[in-house]
Design a protein around this nucleic acid. Sequence first.
DNA 1: ATTATATGCAACAATATGGTTGCATATAAT
DNA 2: ATTATATGCAACCATATTGTTGCATATAAT
Lengths: 105, 105
Amino acid sequence: MIEAKIYKALGDPIRLKIVTRLTKQRSSTIGELSKNLGVSRQGARKQLQVLVSAKLVQLRPKGRQTEVVLDTNQLKIARQFIARLEQQWDQRLLALKNFVEDNSN
Amino acid sequence: MIEAKIYKALGDPIRLKIVTRLTKQRSSTIGELSKNLGVSRQGARKQLQVLVSAKLVQLRPKGRQTEVVLDTNQLKIARQFIARLEQQWDQRLLALKNFVEDNSN
DNA sequence: ATTATATGCAACAATATGGTTGCATATAAT
DNA sequence: ATTATATGCAACCATATTGTTGCATATAAT
């Protein structure tokens, strides 16, 4: 269950907010991103690091500040994994339906 | 960020395994589900409770044992939220592309 | 050269999490 | 009636997580 790490990273309101902002802004600096999250800059930075470790975002130092960019590949993986789970569920449902029909005559 | 709770629930290998099993088996008992997870029954039960709290699964007592069923609505919400994030990203990308084109003549 | 800004890093505290063991209890089987 | 099975619940422990504060440092602006 390698995917668990991605979900864990998304499983926090602050981190999810950071990710959401990045989809809207495409990229931002650490300082900018750390604002209005309800925690200190250092606190926000720690959350950001979790996203980096989960490879959801990348950091690109640019002189005095460092740019934060989203890696949408991980989002895709996360979404597709859930989609597969839903598929399996649907198939199971279909198999059950067929079974019932086959035995109803 | 209400969705965070769902991702948090999925963000653990054992819990993700439970969910995966439930998509394949449609429903199971607590005892059955607790097997082969690498932890004690009580340990597994605690993880299961996290899934219940996140409304990802429901428990239905049936006499001596308790049935566990997946609530795929939550999976759908989780998937769609990610899909929306990806969409926003794509729109931002498109806007940027248009901007560049408009200014290249 | 001084000052301001953006960031990094470590130490610390409080709380959450993941897991165990031990025991209680309700239903089912003999 | 006894025994076996499926489950619940609490106490406890180790570790992880979340947040803070304080201080260091590198780049940029004046």
